[in-house]
């Protein structure tokens, strides 16, 4: 007569759990494991065509529909591509505060008029501009900020 061994059954159940657990782990394991090259932390989804060799990394929130990513303000029509050294947050353009022009002939739509010591400056994208007329043309010249206050810049040309 076959004897009933609870220990044997428990071992079997444990082995079964370990087996099932391993399979589940394999299914959602880290990306370096051959069973699941993307890994559970990969938010791209299985339909993402970029592949594991994509240099943007697994935490990149860009999806299939927006190859640049939701955090990229450039827009899908920006032709620079991901290899552009200026970074994804660089919106580029004449009114980019990180690259303000020394002077310009127009002002962006969102400028504001601010007065310091009775002198009016045109504030846009973090920079202050002072107006001159040169050859009858309005020239908005970048003003340096000293102690938090813009100062009248020299004429640009």
């Amino acid at each position: 007569m076959k004897s009933y061994s609870p220990l044997k059954n428990a071992t079997g159940a444990l082995a079964l759990c370990v087996l099932l657990g391993s399979a589940a782990f394999l299914q959602a394991g880290p990306r370096q494991m051959p069973g699941n090259p993307r890994g559970i932390a990969d938010p791209r989804g299985i339909a993402d065509p970029r592949g594991v060799r994509d240099p943007r990394g697994i935490a990149d929130p860009r999806g299939v529909r927006d190859p640049r990513g939701i955090a990229d303000p450039r827009g899908v029509l920006d032709p620079r591509g991901i290899a552009d050294p200026r970074g994804v947050f660089d919106p580029r353009g004449p009114f980019d505060p990180r690259n303000p022009h020394r002077y310009m002939y127009g002002l962006p739509g969102g400028y504001a008029l601010r007065t310091f010591g009775g002198t009016k400056y045109y504030y846009c994208s973090g920079s202050y501009y002072y107006a001159y007329y040169i050859n009858g043309q309005a020239v908005y010249t970048l003003a340096k900020v000293v102690n938090g206050v813009p100062v009248i810049p020299p004429r640009p040309y």
Partner: peptide
């Protein structure tokens, strides 16, 4: 309205 300086370009070939 603010008064702005009226200048002529200093460039030789504007």
């Amino acid at each position: 309205s603010t008064r702005v300086a009226l200048l002529k370009s200093l460039r030789s070939t504007p």
